[in-house]
Amino acid sequence: MMTRRFLTIGIGAALLSPGAKAGSPELTFEQLYGSVGVLGMTVSDRVKQLSGRRVLMKGFMAPPLKAEAAFFVLTKMPMALCPFCSSDADWPSDIVVVYLDEKQTFVQSNATITVDGLLEHGSWTDPETGFVSLLRLTHAHFQTV
């Protein structure tokens, strides 16, 4: 009986969670920023349009900034092992901060990961770490491809 209740809750949560919806639109790193103007980079129309919705992004997990955290940085290139990718020319157009629901420690792999999260843009200060980020995926889940 207990099992059945857990199952029901589980299914209910899965149905309610927007993440379970297959077919969230995919967003690529190239689509993040529009023009690089005098005021710096501005986010693209696509980002503005998808903002507040769940999107899929593919990339690599950057070396974690915090060992136990609810966030990690998604990069276009596998930074952890590629010494040639460490050029700073592309920062920050090639990173997105991904916030998970729970704090965790990470397993760094050099495989591509797919992240499914709620797209948010605009400057926001993480109250816990004090870090400012411009583009975020929140309530995210990720998996190795």
Binding site: P63, S86, D88, W91, I95, V97, F131, S133
Partner: peptide, 16 residues
């Protein structure tokens, strides 16, 4: 301690 997450990664790269 960097001001933003991007700064943290940028500084890491610059001092590597």
């Amino acid at each position: 301690k960097a001001r933003t997450i991007a700064d943290a990664y940028r500084l890491r790269n610059e001092y590597r």
